[in-house]
Design a protein around this nucleic acid. Structure first.
Length: 510
RNA sequence: GGCCCGUUCGUCUAGGGGUUAGGACGCCGCCCUUUCACGGCGGAAACACGGGUUCAAUUCCCGUACGGGCUACCA
C-alpha cells in the first residue's frame, strides 16, 4: 500500500477517553505498518464545547502511549494549520463553492423555529422530523425564497446556515474495510448543516475538506460515524472528489463492563477503574479523574490491552510491544462487534509487563511516589526490593502498600498467626538463631540459608516452626518474598534489630 | 419510532460447510513452596432462535429476537 496517510481527529472537549486512545492507536498502527503518516488534527469547530487544556491533554496522552504524530499542531507538516478553528476561511470558501454548484443552499430557519417545528410535528405524531428533500420545500431557504429576498437577507447580515442539498431517490453505497458494503437511501438522509451561523463549519464539512486537502488515504474512526458516512460520500461527490475519496474503516465501540452502552467517563467512578489515559483536573470535584497512569499502569500494558480490544493477530501470542503491534496489525482482523471494557484483563496485562521489567527500571518509576510518602532509599536498595516484589504486583502502587516494611519499621503485625507460631518456649531458640544470624559469615541469601538450616538441624527444629516466625518478625505478615532474600536486602543490622524487637512484641500477643 | 451496524464460553476472541469448536482473562482444583505471589498441570464454561440452501450448517441466505450506534447550527 502506498502513501498511507491517516488522521486521528479528536475534539478538545475534555480528557481523551480510552476509546479515543484506541482509535488513535489503530490509526498509528496502520500508518506504521505501511510506512505511512499518522496525523493529529484538532477538530475544535464547536466553540461552545471547547475546553482549555484538552488539546494539551490529548497530545500528552498520545506521547505517553508512544503514539507520536508525524504531523499535527506542534508537530509541523505540509498542511498546516492542523487546528480546524484556524482553517475557518478554507471551509467558507468550499461551502460557497458548493452553493454555487447547486449542491448546497442557504437556510434562514433559526434554531428556535426549528425546535418549534419539531415540537408541533411531534404533537401531530410525527416524531422524526428531518430537514430533508421534502420538508425543505416549506422552510425558509434559498430554494424556496425568491432570489431577491435571499440576497436581501444575506446583505442585511441575517443569520444563516449552509445545508447540503441531499439528492432524491438515490442509493449511496460505499465499501467499509471492516463491515463490507454499507448503503443508505438518500431519502432517509437529512440536509445536514455544513456551515453554522457562527461561520464555523460542522464536523461533516470540515472533515471532508480537510481529509481531501490533507490527502488522507484511510479514515479509521469509531462506529458512531457510520450513520453519517452516507452524507460524507455525498459530500465527496458534490465536490467532485469521489475518485480520491479515502477508504473508510469503522471501528466497533468499546462498551461498558456490563455491556449496556458505550463506555463513558462516568463509568470510571461507577466501576472503580480508569477510563482515561492520564489524570484530569476539571472545574469541579466530580470532574477530576485519575487515569491509567495514576492507577499505576505502564503505557506499554495499556497499549497492548487496547490493541486487543477489538483486534487480535489470529495467533496465540498475547503480549506485543508497540513495534510488534505495528508489524502484526491488519484492518481485516478488526472485529465487527463492540467489545466490553474488561478491567481484569487490563490488570493482567499490567502484571505481565511488571514481571518482565528490570528492578532498576521499576525502581525509578516508583521512586517519586515513595518520596512523596517520605521514604528515602538508595537506588540499589530500591532496585533490589523491586526485583523481589515485581512478581507480586499488579499495579505500581502495590509495591508501596505491600512492601512498605522495606522502607520503614513494621507497623502492623498479623497477631493471629503470631499466636499460632510463637509460644513461651520459643524465645531461647530464636534468640540463639538471631545470634547465629548476626555471626553469619556473609549476609547473602545462600549463606543465610545455610546458617538457618544448620541451626534447625542442630536444634531439631522444623522449617515450619522457624520460617514463619522469621517472616512475621521481619514483615509483620505471612505474605511476601522468600525470607532469606528479604534478609539479604534488609541487611544484617536491620534484620537482627527487627528480630530482637519483634520477639519482645511476640511475647505480649495473646 | 426511523435508519445503520452487530450476535462463538461470564468477558476478549480464533475458526470455519464435515473440528474432541482452539487460546486468553476471570473462576475452581491439583502440583511447586517457609508464606503470598509467579509458574506448571487440569476442570467447568460458547456457536441467540426459526426457516431455508446442502448429503451435511455453528459456518452461506432470509427472517425473528436481542444488543449497540445514529437520529443537533456536538463531534
Amino acid at each position: 500500500m502506498k502513501n498511507v496517510r491517516v488522521r486521528f481527529a479528536p475534539s478538545p472537549t475534555g480528557p481523551l477517553h480510552i476509546g479515543g486512545v484506541r482509535t488513535a492507536l489503530y490509526n498509528y498502527l496502520f500508518a506504521k505498518k505501511y510506512g505511512g503518516t499518522f496525523i493529529l488534527r484538532i477538530e475544535d469547530t464547536d466553540q461552545g464545547r471547547y475546553v482549555p487544556g484538552a488539546e494539551e491533554y490529548i497530545i500528552e496522552s498520545l506521547k505517553w502511549c508512544g503514539l507520536v504524530p508525524g504531523e499535527g499542531p506542534g508537530f509541523g507538516g505540509e498542511f498546516v494549520p492542523y487546528r480546524q478553528s484556524e482553517r475557518k476561511a478554507i471551509y467558507q470558501k468550499f461551502a460557497l463553492e458548493l452553493v454555487s454548484r447547486g449542491e448546497a443552499y442557504y437556510a434562514f430557519d433559526t434554531p428556535e423555529e426549528l425546535d418549534f417545528y419539531r415540537k408541533t410535528e411531534a404533537e401531530k405524531g410525527n416524531h422524526n422530523f428531518k430537514y430533508d428533500n421534502v420538508t425543505r420545500q416549506e422552510m425558509k431557504n434559498s430554494l424556496t425564497l425568491p432570489a431577491e429576498e435571499v440576497n436581501r437577507r444575506l446583505d442585511a447580515g441575517e443569520d444563516y446556515v449552509i445545508r447540503l442539498k441531499v439528492p432524491e431517490n438515490e442509493t449511496v453505497t460505499f465499501e467499509d474495510l471492516i463491515r463490507g458494503e454499507v448503503s443508505f437511501q438518500t431519502n432517509e438522509l437529512d440536509d445536514k448543516v455544513l456551515m453554522k451561523s457562527d461561520g464555523m463549519p460542522t464536523y461533516h464539512l470540515a472533515n471532508i475538506v480537510d481529509d481531501h486537502l490533507m490527502k488522507i488515504s484511510h479514515v479509521i474512526r469509531g462506529e458512531e460515524w457510520l450513520p453519517s458516512t452516507g452524507h460524507h460520500v455525498l459530500l465527496y461527490r458534490a465536490f467532485g472528489w469521489e475518485a480520491t475519496m479515502p477508504q473508510f474503516a469503522h471501528l466497533p465501540l468499546i462498551l461498558k463492563p456490563d455491556g449496556k452502552g458505550k463506555l463513558s467517563k462516568r463509568d470510571g467512578a461507577k466501576f472503580g477503574m480508569p477510563v482515561f489515559p492520564l489524570g484530569w483536573k476539571g472545574d469541579t470535584p466530580e470532574d477530576n479523574f485519575d487515569g491509567f497512569r495514576e492507577f499505576g499502569f505502564l503505557p506499554e500494558a495499556v497499549v497492548n490491552f487496547l490493541a486487543f480490544l477489538g483486534w487480535n493477530p489470529g495467533t496465540e501470542q498475547e503480549i506485543f510491544s508497540l513495534d510488534e503491534l505495528c508489524e502484526a496489525f491488519s484492518i481485516e482482523k478488526i472485529s465487527k462487534s463492540g467489545a466490553r471494557f474488561d478491567y481484569d484483563k487490563a490488570k493482567w496485562y499490567n502484571q505481565q509487563y511488571l514481571h518482565a521489567i528490570r528492578g532498576e527500571t521499576l525502581a525509578e518509576m516508583i521512586r517519586p511516589s515513595l518520596e512523596s510518602q517520605g521514604y528515602k532509599v538508595s537506588a540499589d536498595y530500591l532496585a533490589a526490593v523491586c526485583d523481589l516484589m515485581k512478581d507480586r504486583l499488579t499495579l505500581l502502587p502495590d509495591l508501596v502498600t505491600q512492601a512498605y516494611y522495606f522502607f520503614t519499621d513494621v507497623h502492623t503485625f498479623d497477631d493471629q498467626n503470631i499466636v499460632k507460631r510463637w509460644n513461651a518456649e520459643s524465645r531461647p531458640d530464636f534468640e540463639a538463631l538471631t545470634t547465629a544470624l548476626a555471626d553469619a559469615p556473609g549476609f547473602d541469601a545462600a549463606s543465610l540459608e545455610e546458617v538457618v538450616k544448620n541451626f534447625m538441624e542442630a536444634r531439631n527444629l522444623k522449617m515450619g516452626q522457624v520460617m514463619p516466625v522469621l517472616r512475621l518478625a521481619l514483615a509483620g505478615t505471612m505474605k511476601g518474598p522468600a525470607v532469606y532474600e528479604m534478609m539479604e536486602v534488609l541487611g544484617k543490622e536491620r534484620t537482627v534489630g527487627r528480630l530482637q524487637k519483634a520477639f519482645d512484641y511476640f511475647d505480649t500477643v495473646k
